[in-house]
């Protein structure tokens, strides 16, 4: 499937996947992040149940310590 991830087109083998699955596939390293699918906030408790599908617009913001 094709999705938009942080404003860039991305291709995945799977037809759909949970947020957790995408994080594993992409090997994102930072533990803390904010995820939105089509503008809707996905809280961290929902990463294992929220599904990303064809055409979805996924925004991810990595949170790193320091401030």
């Amino acid at each position: 499937m094709k999705i938009t991830l942080n404003n860039r087109p991305e291709k995945f083998e799977l037809n759909e996947m949970t947020v957790d699955k995408m994080l594993k596939i992409k090997k994102f390293s930072f533990k803390m992040r904010i995820v939105k699918i089509n503008g809707v906030l996905i809280k961290k408790e929902q990463y294992s149940s929220s599904v990303i599908r064809e055409g979805d617009n996924v925004q991810m913001l990595y949170l790193m310590s320091g401030g």
Partner: peptide
């Protein structure tokens, strides 16, 4: 959002967006 710890940032942002 002006926290130091990433976990606090996440909590603040998720709470505010919701």
């Amino acid at each position: 959002e002006a926290f130091d710890e990433a976990s606090e940032k996440q909590m603040f942002i998720e709470t505010a967006l919701e």
